[in-house]
Each structure stands twice: as C-alpha cells, then as structure tokens.
Design a protein around this nucleic acid. Sequence first.
DNA 1: CCACAGCGTACCGGTCAGTGGAACGCCGGG
DNA 2: CCCGGCGTTCCACTGACCGGTACGCTGTGG
Lengths: 256, 256
Amino acid sequence: MGVADEQGLDTVLGKAVALLRAFGADDRLLPLAELVRRTGLPKGTVHRVAGDLVHHRLLEKTEHGYRLAGGLFELGMRAATERTLLEVAMPFLQDLYERTHETVHLGVRDGTEVVYVAKIGGHRQARSPSRAGGRMPMHCTALGKVLLAHADPAVRSAVLSGPLPRRTPHTIVAPGLLEQQLDRALEAGLAFEREESTPGLLCVAAPVLQPDGATAVAAISVTGPIGRFRPEAHQNAVRAAATALASTLARRPGGL
Amino acid sequence: MGVADEQGLDTVLGKAVALLRAFGADDRLLPLAELVRRTGLPKGTVHRVAGDLVHHRLLEKTEHGYRLAGGLFELGMRAATERTLLEVAMPFLQDLYERTHETVHLGVRDGTEVVYVAKIGGHRQARSPSRAGGRMPMHCTALGKVLLAHADPAVRSAVLSGPLPRRTPHTIVAPGLLEQQLDRALEAGLAFEREESTPGLLCVAAPVLQPDGATAVAAISVTGPIGRFRPEAHQNAVRAAATALASTLARRPGGL
DNA sequence: CCACAGCGTACCGGTCAGTGGAACGCCGGG
DNA sequence: CCCGGCGTTCCACTGACCGGTACGCTGTGG
C-alpha cells in the first residue's frame, strides 16, 4: 500500500469527502492540525476546503476545531434505502423493544460489513459499541451472521475467505466453524452471538427477507447483557418482528 | 433575485452540494434530466459531477435515476450535535412513547425553523408530515413554539417580524397572538398545537433547557390525532421527559 | 526572558482539473 | 417516419484550485 493511494485525493470533491470521512465514529471535534494529519493534505488546502465545507453547512467551526454539522445530518436522513427502511420498520422495532425492553437493532449489509440503521434502547440498555450509522464486521455479530447466511454465495465466500479478526476470546475465527453456524442460521432463520464482538453481550438476530425468500434486505436483533439476558427467550419475538416487517415491505409499491 | 444567485454554483463543491440538496425530503429517485432542471446546471456537468459523487458513495445510480446513497447516511449519523442528542435522549423518548403510545418527536432549532432529530411511533401513529432530518416552520408547531419561546430574543423577533405562512385554517398568522402564546409557553414551560400545521393533529411540547435555564437546546413533543388524543393528558409526561433529559445532558462533561 | 514548536491564518502565481457547449445514439410516441 | 426527450461522450479553453511560503499567536521550557 502506497502513501496516498486512497483514490481521489487529487480532486476537490475527493478532498472534501476525505475531510468529512476523517471524522471517525467517535470523534466530535477535530482541530485543523489533526485533519491535516489524518488526510495527509497540505495545511493550506485543508484550511481552504474546510472553510468551503463550513460555508455549505457540512462542517461547523468552533474555537477548538471543526465538527460535522447539521446539514450533513439532514442530507443523511434523506438517503433513500435507509430512510424507507427506518420509517417502515420503526413501529415493529418499537413493539419489539416494548416486548423485550432490551436494545433493538436494525441493520443492513454493505459489502462485507454490517451497517446499523437504527438502534433503540432504554435506560437499562447494555453498553454496546454499536451506533446508528456505524459499522461492524459480519463474522462476530448476530446481525452480521444472519445477514451473511441469507446473502449471495459470493459474499459469503468473500467473508469466509477473508480474515476473521478476533475481537474477544469468543470470536469465531475458524472459517469452518463460521460456515457451520451460517448453515444453521440459514436453516433456522435465526442467528446467535455470545460475547463474540463485545465481552458481556449476547444477541439474537432474524433476517428480513425479500418476497422471494432468498436474500435478506435487512435484519433485526435484540441485544442484552450476559446474566439476566437469555437470547433464546426472545428468539420468537425477534423472528415475528422480522417477518412482519418483511411482509409490510413486500406490500410496498416501489419495492425496497 | 437573479437567475443563479444561489451562492457557490461555480465551484465543484457547490455543484456537488447543490446536486445532493436537489433531493427534496420526499424524493427517492431523480433522473439526470430532473437534476439538471432543479439545479440549473448544464447537462454534461451534472452527468460528470453526479458520476463523481457516485464514486464517493454519496450518490447511487440506478436504471431510472440517481438516489442518495448509504455513505451519506453514515456521515450524517456522525454529525456531532444530533448524534449526541439522539443517543442521550433515546431512552427518555422511549419511556415517553411507552407511557403514551403516541408519536414522539425530538427537535432542535436551526435558524428560524425546527429540525426533527428523532421521530418514534408505533403502528397507531398519527399521519404526520414530519420526518427525522426534516424541517418545519416554528410558528405552527408545538415544538417550534416552545423552542422559540425559550430562544434568544433576537430569534423570537426575527420570526415574529417575518411572514407566518398559513398551513391550515387554524394556523396562527397574527404576530400578536403568536407572541401571546409564546409568553404563555415560556411561563408554563409547555406549548400546544391544535391543527396548526396539519389538519387533524394535536401536539404538546416541552423544552429541554440548558443548565442556566435560559435557552432551550432541544424540545420533546407528543403528537396524536384529534378525537382520541388529548394533549393536556400528556403534558406532565412530556415535561418530565424533557427535564430528565435536560439534567442528564447537564451532567455531561463536554457539554452539548 | 527569549527561543522554539505547534497551531491557525493569509497570500499568490502557475497549471491542470474542471468546464459546458455541441454532437451522438437511443428510445417511445404521434 | 420524424421528432422530442433522455443519457452519454467528446474536447479545447480557462479560471478555480493548488500548495509552498510566510505571518502572528500562544503556551512551554530552558
């Protein structure tokens, strides 16, 4: 890997996007110098482009640095797939939460990762690293595994043949074992996770299938802390929510 | 107003942002020609810039046109203010929903408008035009009125002196009457709305005040359909949620 | 007290990325 | 068949963008 092989840094747009993407999932405020470091762009350039972004309300300038601004939030919430999914799914997620009172996730697959579209939870919610709009690997999360099980074979083998980074002592890093679990998940229409992504967390997930029943457009999960939480106790509720959402989506005109 | 006085259309970034913003709150799929019409940019230019945006995962190209892509959603969910607010507030909104089983909104003020940060509701939710990430005028919504009441005097008078577009027969279009209501809202820490933005909808909202108690950083509301829904019945629940959220926010280190 | 390092800001001439008008091929409909 | 609307491609000109350089500020430690 070269020094500046991230494609597109030589166009204004590329620089702008790079600046925005320089903000990690946990960064709130980044000083100009830090943006310079992360993007590798010249200081003057960052100054100028960041200024332009501020002008367009995508970035906000404070005394101590830049932050992603509200305009970005507004645009993001207009993204077609996520918005539709979110609006249609919300009532079902709501029901599921009310039935379980545990953290509820809605996620989709993007490439070989899971993207969380929604996360709802109450005061007792388990401390989980997930965020709406965030990403996680597929092999170590219930959502990921169930999405992968119901995905195109090409995707499945892409993940299986790629590296399976260990995140906890319980993470499944053996491709064979993972494949076994995927088969079982495909059969059961349900996947489990036991401290595979985060210590102390358990999870059940069910797929939201397309009308043809083949691949999954999304998945729903319930997460809780080890101890009080028993995934099996919620599997029916999760599955019910997922299938209900699926049939509602199927009834939609434009699809998706 | 000239023909192309929207500032910044003569820079790549400006064009790009214009393209993204060309997508209204309800547009899912826009053909190239439509983008050309809305932005006023030359066809070739739109083609190229849109292509670049696709390349950066901000736009998605389909057979029938372009749509805002997932990358935008991910970026949007990282926006500092909205994200923090959303994460901290979620449990309180959840509680409120569970207590009322009506549509719950979380909103902030931006300029002279309300921006909805979250909207949660179940299957029985009233048909409201609001969307997460969407905007509404302040004078005709409970959220807007309570935010305005607890806002800087400059903002208040800016709205009062501006036009107050009529949206329904019940919309308050008289500045004097609105001011009266704002005073009452400031005093009561609570604002009501009765079919002022949308026929058939009623709403109560309470402010999420800053530690100093002066201005509001956000507001929470409960909305329901005329008939079964009585705003007064929920005013205590809404106020409780708002103050609880406020004190939780106050306890946060970085503020905001 | 001053040298220094790190930061944010500002300037500016050269150049190449971006520009947009024009022309093309493809439909579908009259 | 001809026509209007669409998406795509091409290309020579030009001004928007580039990034090195220099400045002023602040805190730090020698």
